[in-house]
Computed example of a mutant assay.
Amino acid sequence: MSEQRRRNMNRSKSNLRKRKRAHKRLNIILTITTVIFLSLVFTLIKQRFTINNLKKDQALLIDQQNKIKSETDQLKEEIKKSNSLEYIEQRAREELGMIKKDEKIYVNPENLNNNQESDSQENSN
């Protein structure tokens, strides 16, 4: 009986060792799996933030592009106008104070006083 008991004890010790090894392997596998899973989650979250930032940048760039396009269109229209005689005449009258031959200019003294007051206010600012 003692022989059989010894065998049984050896078997149970052997089974216990196998269980401990299996448990260690399982813990190692679970640890590695957890680390991989957490790194994937972190990477996905980081990519989501990056995508959101890029979308915001894209929206800003599209707005800038639209503003530049409208400004370009306005400048093209101004270039077309600047080639017309009416536009040249209008600019000469407004900016240079030029008049046509035999044309008389009437000046309202009240407007002169208002213009001088507004000019002096602008200069003081």
Rank of each mutant, 00 (worst) to 15 (best):
I51R: 04
R11S: 08
I68H: 04
R11G: 00
T43A: 10
T33K: 08
V41L: 15
L96C: 06
K101T: 15
E95A: 06
F42E: 00
N115P: 01
N108W: 02
N111E: 14
Q58C: 04
D63N: 14
Q121A: 14
K69T: 13
R91T: 13
Q74D: 12
N27G: 07
D73K: 08
N125D: 07
E103Q: 15
V35M: 08
R19V: 07
V35W: 04
E117D: 09
D73I: 10
I105C: 04
F37M: 01
S124N: 11
K76Y: 05
E78Y: 04
L44W: 00
Q116R: 08
T31A: 13
V107I: 15
V35A: 14
E103S: 12
R48G: 01
T31G: 08
Q74F: 02
L26C: 07
S70G: 03
N83I: 09
K76E: 14
I51L: 06
R6S: 12
L96M: 12
L61H: 06
S14V: 03
K56Y: 01
Q64A: 15
L40A: 02
V41C: 04
E86L: 12
L40S: 02
E89I: 11
N66A: 15
Q4L: 13
V107H: 03
R25V: 07
L85H: 03
S12C: 05
S84V: 07
G97P: 04
D119S: 10
N83R: 10
Q74W: 04
R5P: 00
K24W: 04
L30H: 06
I88C: 03
L16R: 11
D63P: 00
E89P: 01
N15M: 07
L85A: 15
I105W: 06
I29F: 06
S84C: 05
I62K: 09
E122H: 03
N108V: 13
Q90T: 14
K18M: 03
E94T: 10
N114V: 14
L112M: 13
